[in-house]
Structure formats: structure tokens, C-alpha cells
């Protein structure tokens, strides 16, 4: 079963975007998570943390206020 969850980490300073992403990973276990961030630093940190946990960074969209990162893990 696939789940889609959204984490809004825009405006949060280090290391909140990573903490929120890790919390979401623990909750959903597998499926898709969309993380919204507003800085390049947060984009890099979230992508790095996701890969370290065995998730795939499936897509990064540039948006007006930052980025929308989609990470994926097959169940």
C-alpha cells in the first residue's frame, strides 16, 4: 500500500526540516513523503538524510517559495 504524506518545513531553521522528515519516515515506513522547504540548505540536508535512511529522492520541484521534495520507499 502506498501512502502520501506532506511535511511543511518552510521557514524552519536547522535541523528542524531533517527532524520532521525523519519523524515522518518513522510514521509511514514506506510510500511517498512530500517535504516542503524554503532554503537550499534544507533541500540538501533533507535529501542527504533521506538517502542515509534508504529512501529514494524521487523528485525535487522548484517552487516560488522554495522546493518541494518527494522521497519514496518501496514497501
Amino acid at each position: 500500500m502506498s501512502n502520501t504524506n506532506t511535511v511543511d518545513a518552510r521557514g524552519l531553521s536547522c535541523p528542524q526540516p531533517v527532524i520532521l522528515t525523519l519523524n515522518a519516515m518513522k510514521k509511514v515506513k514506506d510510500g511517498d513523503i512530500v517535504i516542503l522547504v524554503d532554503t537550499d540548505t534544507a533541500k540538501e540536508n533533507v535529501s542527504r538524510a533521506a538517502k542515509a535512511q534508504g529512501w529514494e529522492v524521487a523528485d525535487i520541484q522548484s517552487e516560488e517559495d522554495g522546493y518541494s521534495i518527494t522521497i519514496k520507499k518501496e514497501g
Binding site: 521557514g11 524552519l12 531553521s13 535541523p15 528542524q16 527532524i19
Partner: peptide
């Protein structure tokens, strides 16, 4: 503190 929910809240544009 960070692990137990410490957060100064979001900034805005």
C-alpha cells in the same frame, strides 16, 4: 531538547 520537540517556530519571507 531538539529530540523532544524544541522549536523556535518558522520564519517568513
Amino acid at each position: 531538547f531538539l529530540s523532544s520537540g524544541y522549536n523556535l517556530g518558522a520564519s517568513h519571507k
